[in-house]
Design a binder for these strands. Structure first.
Lengths: 193, 193
DNA sequence: AGGCATATTTGCAGGGTATGCAGAAGTGTA
DNA sequence: TACACTTCTGCATACCCTGCAAATATGCCT
């Protein structure tokens, strides 16, 4: 039932636009009552957004912390992207969902806010990595600041990547996109003009 | 009237929390009707968010495009921050507003979305600067990509800066914060681990 | 099958945001 | 005072969402 409600919500929103679809419509299509919809999903938004994006697994975090390359940003982005692409389930529905979210400002905003809630946790992970790498010369505050910035930059890169990913003529893999993004970051920060 | 409604909305929200304040409350405090509130403001959100953040002025854009230093990111951030801090008006109300927004996830999200709408325009400005600097070796698509990344990174830095700015013990100026942020960006991208 | 406990589903009342519309109230002018 | 014009207001309506209690379905035991 939950699955059917979500699917129907996403499909209807993709077809008519998020605002044009009412909870009642979704329920009629699913032959159930609005009250049940709210019991399962809590809100119309939640139906479209779907399950919360997962935090990186313990194993992924462990690798990030204890098997560093010489580039935090790349490692961090790799970890996050890996955790995101692990979800799988129904790829068609997944992509439809993303499309609806991405084309509805209200929903992208909400999604950004939700993902932002994980940032504090990720920040701690980054600090842990710094510590593990023997960064003992810096104070806690300094490392936390630096971790904060790693997260902030990653957010930028991920935003950029997501935009590319949802552009009409998308053909490359996420990994290629991220690699391309990193190259771009370096270019922006090293070349003049 | 409009001003009074906004001020009252922000003050009540700061005191009781955004969700706890109803439009009716605001209107009672202002001795007016809910209908008038909606005539002026359109939504409760709008009352708290206030006027849209302005785009950089023509003069600021001109300087960014034609008087480049060797660092796009710094120049871009400088331009944006300058345009943001030019607003002025009532500083106390301004800060109260920011605080309410920053402490209400729903509102920060919305604000981020609104600001995001200016990114396309800023991207064009960055490309213009690249062109003015004689970057003729690159294709349009390449420059646009690079500009896109400048914006994405800036968003990250601005997010970081905003977080710092609204931390309890804030004492430094925005300019100092930005400079500090840039240093941090470079460190993250150049030092190992 | 009948009876029973539990879980799921539903209806209903109500509070909140927001919009369209038409009429009321205020304002300035001849 | 009469008129035009702007501003404000009330009312009806649509939609989102929540709490509560009743109805329905489900599974299990005798």
């Amino acid at each position: 039932m939950l699955e059917q409600l979500e699917r129907t919500a996403v499909e209807l929103a993709a077809e008519h636009g998020y605002d044009a679809v009412t909870v009642e419509m979704i329920c009629e299509a699913c032959m159930t009552s609005p009250r049940t919809f709210y019991n399962y999903l809590g809100s119309k938004e939640a139906a479209i957004l779907g399950p919360r994006t997962p935090f990186a697994s313990e194993e992924q975090v462990r690798r990030f912390v204890h098997e560093p390359t010489d580039d935090v940003l790349v490692d961090f982005l790799t970890m996050v992207i890996d955790s995101l692409t692990e979800v799988a389930v129904d790829p068609a529905l997944y992509r439809l969902r993303q499309r609806v979210i991405y084309t509805t400002p209200e929903l992208s905003a909400k999604r950004l806010a939700i993902d932002g809630e994980m940032e504090a946790r990720y920040r701690a992970v980054v600090v842990e990595r710094f510590r593990a790498a023997g960064r003992t010369e810096a104070t806690d505050a300094e490392l936390d600041d630096e971790a904060h910035m790693v997260i902030a930059l990653s957010r930028g890169v991920l935003t950029y990547t997501a935009a590319k990913w949802y552009e009409p003529g998308f053909d490359r893999t996420v990994r290629e996109l991220i690699e391309n993004s990193i190259v771009l970051v370096r270019r922006v920060l090293t070349t003049s003009s």
